[in-house]
């Protein structure tokens, strides 16, 4: 009997964010009939797709007991670089060369840019022992500065139908950004649950010393994780840019906070080693539903922020209370 109860509370804990989400949805369905519709569902998913991409990368970093504050700026810079490549190509003055980019080429260029920025974060953190908070805080400013330099402070607009399709198009009735986010999540779930790399990530976050003694190349794993998160931020940047049909120099401001919020609400421990990508997806959906519901209920944007903050705090308090019971 006691054993059964214990299993019950374990299951409860594992699905606590899902249960919270269901309760939230039920309440909102009763409060407004605009909430529980297919259109609104897709709307919510489209809105959170970018956050899911970023927060997935953030999850892997947080699992290693790190953090990445630079994702918002990396998103802006890589979005701008992608459309810059697409529209203007690269001119190499020395050889009087001009390199043009196809849509796919430009996207790959943007992702590579994100990968390199993330790699640089990881490099500073592992080789020079800079705390992740500081290294990525520096990158937050650096990448934003480069975005301003690259765009000269002006938006780059009119990017063509093909590119806009990435942000606003639909495939089989489902928005393209949602497809992209789904693929990102599946990939990250695969990596964390099924591969060596995933084990290494959890091991480093769980006990870095033990992981090191087990022969794991800690630095290489960390650099890879930061690079991957950088590339996912770039992907988010491409989606945002395509959706607005314009690369904004101040795109992605404070997106890192939404991503961290999703990770935390999803039950991943900031001290590393504990949590999951699925949890983060739940966290992102909870934030999305909450935003959407509050808008539908005509709650003032100022109150929306207060509520969001309260939910983050509540999620962590519930999590900690669960830990103490163990």
């Amino acid at each position: 009997m006691i054993a059964q109860l214990k299993i019950g509370s374990d299951t409860l804990k594992r699905f606590q964010s899902l249960i919270a989400l269901l309760i939230l949805c039920t309440i909102l369905s009763f409060m407004t009939d605009k909430f529980f519709t297919a259109d609104n569902g897709l709307n919510v998913l489209r809105q959170i797709a970018v956050n899911i991409c970023i927060a997935t990368g953030m999850t892997l970093i947080v699992l290693t007991a790190g953090i990445d504050l630079s994702v918002g700026s990396v998103l802006a810079l890589c979005g701008a670089v992608t459309v810059g490549l697409l529209r203007n190509g690269v001119e190499i003055p020395a050889g009087d060369l001009f390199v043009g980019f196809t849509l796919l080429g430009a996207i790959l260029g943007g992702l590579l840019c994100g990968w390199l920025l993330g790699w640089f974060n990881g490099f500073a953190i592992t080789k020079f022992n800079v705390p992740p908070f500081v290294a990525t805080l520096a990158m937050l400013t650096i990448a934003r500065g480069f975005t301003m330099l690259y765009t000269k402070g002006h938006p780059i607009s009119n990017l063509g139908k093909e590119f806009a399709f990435i942000g606003s198009g639909s495939f089989l009735g489902i928005p393209v950004p949602v497809w992209i986010a789904a693929i990102v999540v599946l990939l990250a779930v695969f990596i964390t649950q099924k591969t060596k790399m995933g084990r290494y990530i959890y091991a480093i976050g769980g006990n870095e010393q033990a992981a090191k003694l087990s022969g794991i190349n800690i630095n290489r794993v960390k650099i890879t994780v930061y690079s991957f998160a950088g590339a996912l931020a770039a992907l988010g940047g491409i989606i945002v840019t395509a959706r607005l049909d314009s690369a904004q120099p101040n795109a992605g401001m404070s997106y890192e906070l939404d991503a961290i919020a999703a990770v935390v609400i999803g039950g991943t421990s900031l001290s590393g080693g504990k949590g999951s990508v699925w949890g983060t997806v739940m966290g992102a959906v909870i934030i999305g539903v909450l935003n959407n519901g509050l808008v539908l209920l005509n709650v003032s944007p100022f109150w929306q922020q207060v509520v969001k903050g309260g939910v983050i705090l509540l999620a962590v308090i519930i999590d900690k209370a669960g830990e103490r019971r163990d």
Partner: peptide, 30 residues
């Protein structure tokens, strides 16, 4: 506790940590 184990993980993952290469299928998934 400090250097040998990952206390919050289970017995299985602790034992396999040093030999993950040996339990891979197709050089990709565990």
């Amino acid at each position: 506790k400090l250097h040998g184990l990952i206390l919050n993980q289970n017995i299985k993952t602790n034992i396999s940590l040093t030999v993950l290469k040996q339990i891979e299928k197709w050089g990709l998934l565990l």
